[in-house]
Simulated scan of single mutants.
Amino acid sequence: MKRARIAWAGAVHDAIEVADAPDQLELLTPALRGTRVPMAEVVWLPPLAPMPAHRPRTVLALGLNYADHAKELAFKAPTEPLAFVKGEASLIGHRATTVRPAGVKNMHYECELAVVIGRKARRVSKADALDYVGGYTVANDYAIRDYLENWYRPNLRVKNRDTCTPIGPWLVDAAHVHEQLGGPGNLRLRTTVDGKVTQEGTTAALIFDVPTLIEYFSAFMTLQPGDLILTGTPDGVVDCPAGSEVVTEIEGIGRLVNFIVSPAQ
């Protein structure tokens, strides 16, 4: 099942894809359950349940987790996951706008498979790791190369800016991915900029796959339901000026559209 989170008619709703009407969503809000609304009338939000007030969402992101991308940047492939933490304020939804700071010379997309943790995970083995996944979505983790000091540990201005991480449009149930798509280990990724294909790859090329990452992180920290793991991007990143339409797609997961704007816009 593909789930979405939207704003419509002055309220936030959970919704699902409508198989026989691809331009509509079906609301899950109890009082409006079954109501169909046109996609063109909604504001798409990150397809994630809100966290309890006492706990922020943990967003873990991977650097250089595809060998071809590491080679593209003239780095050796890492022998241990290169992880950094992102703030939840960076997340925005499908068809939202990302601000490119004035004067920046290189700001590029990063099409990534995002893993949503489904239940509390602590010291999980690789063999059991997928049992702790709640679902998957598409993330576009923009990087601003001008601010980069160290590829191994990107500083905050590179990866933690407001609006820098579009995510969605769907949260696809883990069971569907595992049973119908053969799991998260061989999904095709593609990025287009203004309709031109600029990046293609497959999650089969991940250096550290999803089970390995869950085992690695849960060995020293507790993963909670709703936490995110952004698994990295393949090679083929290019600079995107203001005015660009960037579409990041993952086979069976979704097609995430984003627009880059200037601060003035």
Rank of each mutant, 00 (worst) to 15 (best):
Ser218Arg: 01
Leu91Lys: 06
Val42Phe: 10
Glu41Ile: 13
Ala114Cys: 11
Ala264Cys: 09
Lys71Thr: 14
Asp173Leu: 06
Val99Leu: 14
Gly118Glu: 05
Glu26Leu: 09
His13Leu: 07
Val18Ile: 13
Val18Asn: 09
Ala40Gly: 15
His178Val: 07
Phe259Ala: 12
Ala121Tyr: 00
Val177Ile: 09
Gly254Pro: 07
Val18Leu: 10
Thr231Leu: 00
Ile144Lys: 01
Ala139Pro: 06
Pro78Gly: 05
Asn65Ser: 06
Thr212Asn: 05
Asn140Glu: 09
Thr212Tyr: 08
Tyr136Ser: 04
Tyr142Leu: 12
Asp14Arg: 10
Ala264Gln: 15
Val116Tyr: 03
Gly226Trp: 05
Glu200Cys: 02
Gly168His: 01
Pro22Asp: 15
Asp173Gln: 08
Arg33Pro: 00
Pro78Leu: 07
Leu230Thr: 03
Lys120Met: 05
Gly103Ser: 12
Arg119Phe: 02
Cys164Val: 04
Pro81Arg: 01
Tyr66Gly: 00
Glu179Pro: 03
Leu91Arg: 02
Leu113Phe: 08
Ala175Ile: 08
Leu130Asn: 08
Met51Gly: 02
Ala70Ile: 12
Thr163Tyr: 08
Gln265Asn: 14
Lys120Leu: 04
Pro47Arg: 11
Val246Trp: 00
Gln199Met: 14
His176Pro: 00
Ala7Thr: 13
Phe217Gln: 04
Gln199Ile: 11
Ile253Cys: 09
Leu113Tyr: 06
Tyr147Met: 08
Asp173His: 09
Ala77Ser: 15
Lys76Pro: 05
Val104Arg: 15
Val177Trp: 10
Pro241Leu: 15
Glu41Val: 15
Ala139Met: 15
Ser262Met: 10
Tyr142Gly: 01
Gly243Lys: 15
Gly226Pro: 03
Thr212Val: 06
Pro154Trp: 06
Ile16Phe: 01
Arg255Leu: 10
Cys164Ser: 12
Glu251Thr: 09
Pro211His: 11
Val158Pro: 02
Gly182Ile: 08
Ala121Asn: 00
His69Asp: 01
Lys86Ile: 05
Cys111Tyr: 06
Ser244Ile: 13
Val158His: 05
Pro81Thr: 00
Lys86Tyr: 03
Thr35Asn: 10
Trp8Ser: 02
Leu113Ile: 08
Asn140Pro: 04
Val116Asn: 02
Leu187Cys: 04
Gly93Ser: 12
Pro263Met: 13
Arg5Met: 06
Val124His: 01
Ala77Asn: 05
Glu41Asp: 15
Cys240Leu: 08
Val238Pro: 01
Lys76Ala: 15
Tyr66His: 04
Ala19Lys: 12
Gly103Trp: 12
Ile229Leu: 11
Leu62Pro: 01
Gln24Lys: 15
Arg119Thr: 02
Ala114Tyr: 00
Ala31Ser: 15
Val99Cys: 12
Pro225Phe: 02
Arg122Cys: 02
Ala11Gln: 14
Arg95Gly: 12
Arg55Phe: 02
Pro211Glu: 10
Asn160Ala: 06
His94Arg: 14
Glu26Asp: 04
